[in-house]
């Protein structure tokens, strides 16, 4: 299986990336090389194999919903590129 330029463009849109045209060409070649290599996995029959999402037996961890110490608004805002009155400022979403 190999991917085409339009696949690269589609995936870039999904990933919220804007690629220059030479970047698209480069990624097309490199991703195809990697995916062709990954095709190797199909040599293995995994019909009866359960997937491993995690090596440990992971459980939901619940705790009581109690108020505890947390960062101040000032701390949370410390790295904000733009802020206004303790809130993250972004371009208008609604017209």
């Amino acid at each position: 299986m190999s991917i085409r330029l339009e696949n690269v463009e589609h995936v870039a849109r999904l990933a919220r990336l804007e690629l220059a045209s030479e970047e698209k060409d480069r990624f097309l070649g490199q991703l195809n090389a990697i995916l062709n290599y990954a095709d190797k996995l199909n040599e293995l029959n995994t019909d009866d194999v359960a997937p491993t999402t995690h090596v440990l037996p992971i459980h939901n961890v619940l705790r009581d919903d109690k108020v505890r110490e947390s960062l101040t608004i000032e701390q949370v805002m410390k790295n904000a590129p733009e802020e206004e009155e303790g809130q993250f400022l972004v371009p208008a979403v609604l017209e």
Binding site: T46, V49, P51, T52
Partner: peptide
């Protein structure tokens, strides 16, 4: 791809 790789992860484990 993703699910297949997770299954192969089981075999490796």
């Amino acid at each position: 791809f993703y699910l297949k790789a997770q299954k192969v992860r089981t075999l490796i484990k």
